[in-house]
Structures are given as structure tokens and as C-alpha cells.
Measured scan of single mutants.
Amino acid sequence: VTVDIKGMEYHFDNPEEAKKFAERMAKELGGELKVENGTLKVE
């Protein structure tokens, strides 16, 4: 699973970990979490 945090890509084997990480980063950065082509994106 790929997580894109404002252009920086992180790769996770575990989808649950990827989702938790993306949600935490969205909250910390005040960004919006989206799913695009199987990639979790925070913008």
C-alpha cells in the first residue's frame, strides 16, 4: 500500500498500518485524506 503525504511516498505491507499512518498524518498536518487509484493521499 502506498501512502502519499504531500508528495512524499511511504510504502506499507499492512493496509491497516497504512490507513492509521495516513489518518494520523492528515490530522497532524491539517490535510485531507483521499483514496486515489489505491493510494492513500494526504493533501
Score class of each variant (00 low, 15 high):
9 E>A: 12
42 V>T: 04
3 V>I: 05
28 E>V: 11
5 I>Y: 08
1 V>I: 12
20 K>N: 10
35 V>Y: 14
16 E>K: 06
17 E>F: 04
2 T>E: 02
25 M>D: 01
42 V>M: 04
22 A>Q: 03
12 F>K: 00
16 E>F: 10
40 L>E: 03
40 L>P: 03
7 G>W: 03
24 R>V: 07
10 Y>W: 08
10 Y>N: 00
30 G>P: 03
22 A>M: 07
3 V>S: 01
25 M>N: 02
9 E>S: 13
29 L>Q: 05
9 E>D: 04
1 V>D: 02
33 L>T: 05
4 D>R: 15
18 A>T: 00
3 V>C: 07
16 E>D: 12
17 E>H: 06
7 G>I: 02
8 M>V: 14
39 T>M: 13
42 V>D: 03
16 E>T: 09
10 Y>C: 10
43 E>A: 11
28 E>C: 15
33 L>Q: 04
38 G>N: 09
9 E>M: 15
39 T>D: 05
22 A>I: 08
30 G>V: 05
26 A>V: 09
32 E>I: 15
34 K>C: 11
3 V>W: 01
42 V>N: 03
17 E>M: 07
41 K>G: 05
27 K>L: 13
30 G>Y: 06
19 K>D: 02
2 T>S: 06
19 K>Y: 15
29 L>H: 06
34 K>I: 13
31 G>V: 11
24 R>A: 12
18 A>V: 00
13 D>K: 10
35 V>R: 06
12 F>I: 01
27 K>G: 07
14 N>R: 05
35 V>L: 11
31 G>R: 04
1 V>L: 12
17 E>I: 05
37 N>P: 06
2 T>V: 13
1 V>Y: 14
29 L>W: 06
18 A>F: 03
30 G>W: 05
18 A>N: 00
33 L>C: 13
43 E>K: 11
7 G>P: 02
25 M>T: 03
42 V>Y: 03
20 K>H: 08
41 K>A: 05
11 H>T: 10
27 K>N: 10
43 E>M: 14
42 V>F: 05
13 D>V: 09
32 E>C: 14
1 V>H: 09
13 D>C: 14
38 G>W: 02
40 L>G: 04
35 V>E: 11
16 E>L: 09
43 E>I: 15
11 H>S: 06
32 E>T: 15
38 G>F: 02
4 D>H: 15
9 E>L: 15
32 E>A: 12
31 G>W: 13
35 V>Q: 09
37 N>S: 07
6 K>F: 15
11 H>R: 11
39 T>A: 09
31 G>I: 11
16 E>G: 06
38 G>Q: 06
2 T>L: 10
23 E>K: 07
35 V>T: 10
27 K>H: 11
20 K>V: 10
31 G>Y: 12
39 T>K: 14
27 K>M: 13
9 E>K: 15
8 M>E: 09
27 K>F: 14
40 L>T: 04
24 R>S: 10
26 A>F: 05
13 D>N: 11
43 E>Y: 15
33 L>F: 08
12 F>C: 09
7 G>M: 02
43 E>V: 15
22 A>W: 08
10 Y>S: 01
31 G>D: 04
13 D>M: 09
40 L>H: 04
5 I>M: 03
39 T>P: 04
35 V>A: 08
42 V>G: 03
22 A>P: 00
37 N>W: 04
5 I>E: 01
12 F>Q: 00
14 N>E: 05
24 R>M: 12
8 M>S: 08
10 Y>V: 03
26 A>W: 08
28 E>W: 13
40 L>D: 03
25 M>W: 12
18 A>C: 05
7 G>L: 01
34 K>V: 13
38 G>D: 06
9 E>F: 14
13 D>I: 09
7 G>V: 02
23 E>R: 05
9 E>P: 08
20 K>F: 09
12 F>P: 00
5 I>R: 01
14 N>G: 05
12 F>E: 00
28 E>I: 13
33 L>I: 14
6 K>N: 15
15 P>D: 08
10 Y>K: 01
18 A>L: 02
27 K>Q: 12
23 E>Q: 09
6 K>L: 15
38 G>R: 02
22 A>S: 02
37 N>L: 08
32 E>F: 15
33 L>D: 03
8 M>T: 13
34 K>S: 09
20 K>Y: 08
9 E>H: 14
39 T>W: 09
13 D>G: 08
5 I>L: 06
19 K>A: 09
43 E>C: 15
4 D>K: 15
7 G>N: 03
14 N>L: 05
1 V>Q: 06
20 K>P: 00
22 A>N: 01
